[in-house]
């Protein structure tokens, strides 16, 4: 704060990019811990995990996968647009990304809502009656998709801030490191989903 003027006279975009990647590594390992738990319990309860996966809607899962993949592309394109000084296209692409992210969350809401209606939530009697494998599967399902959804929400906030900065011309063709880093964060969210999707929805 006080010494900001003297300390930050050099802008080092590479430093912030390395910093962002390092942050992404910590996020990957945060989910990595959950993936270890998932693997161990899948290994110990193969049949229950197979059957439980059939409770999940493959259709909603696939739609959400497509949505996230497209949104990942649009945010990557918005960086190219900024580099080419095409501000209008960047604004359009970023707004598209944020819209897709919101659609993802709406789908997720209906999916979770359905599970709750069927009494499939942690601590419920229905789940307890299904057996231990199902308790573990749905515990992990809610934790991992929940943590992922939390990252989507954070991503929406970050991307909205970027959008405002592009509109206000604070991000321009010679100064777009922030947008690049926000994009990296959004791709991380995509990367994790690429693994969550088959592990929870497909293997059944």
């Amino acid at each position: 704060m006080e010494q900001t003027s003297t300390h930050t006279e050099h802008r080092d975009d590479t430093a912030s990019k390395i910093g962002m990647w390092l942050f992404i590594f910590t996020e990957l390992l945060l989910f990595g811990g959950l993936f270890i738990v998932y693997s161990v319990y899948r290994f110990k309860n193969p049949v229950a995990f197979h059957l439980a996966a059939e409770e999940l809607s493959k259709l909603i899962g696939t739609i959400n996968t497509v949505i996230l993949l497209i949104s990942s592309m649009t945010v990557a394109m918005s960086i190219s647009a900024i580099q080419l000084a095409d501000r209008k296209k960047a604004i359009l692409l970023l707004s598209g990304t944020i819209t897709l992210a919101l659609v993802f969350l709406v789908n997720k809401y209906f999916e979770w809502h359905g599970k709750f209606e069927h009494g499939l939530y942690p601590g419920s009697q229905e789940l307890f009656d299904l057996g231990q494998g199902d308790i573990l599967f749905f515990g992990l399902y809610f934790t991992m998709t929940g943590l992922h959804a939390l990252h989507i929400i954070v991503g929406i906030i970050v991307l909205t801030v970027m959008l405002v900065k592009v509109i206000k011309k604070n991000i321009q063709s010679d100064n777009y490191a922030q947008l690049e880093n926000a994009g990296l964060y959004w791709h991380l969210v995509d990367l994790i989903w690429i693994f969550l999707f088959p592990l929870f929805y497909l293997i059944s």
Partner: peptide, 25 residues
């Protein structure tokens, strides 16, 4: 600066792979 076209090809590849992984189940 990555071309828009590159990104579209990558997306098509990703969607195809998603299709395959759904189909093989």
């Amino acid at each position: 600066i990555v071309k828009y076209r590159t990104y579209i090809f990558v997306l098509l590849g990703l969607l195809t792979l998603t299709g395959i992984s759904v189909a093989v189940t």
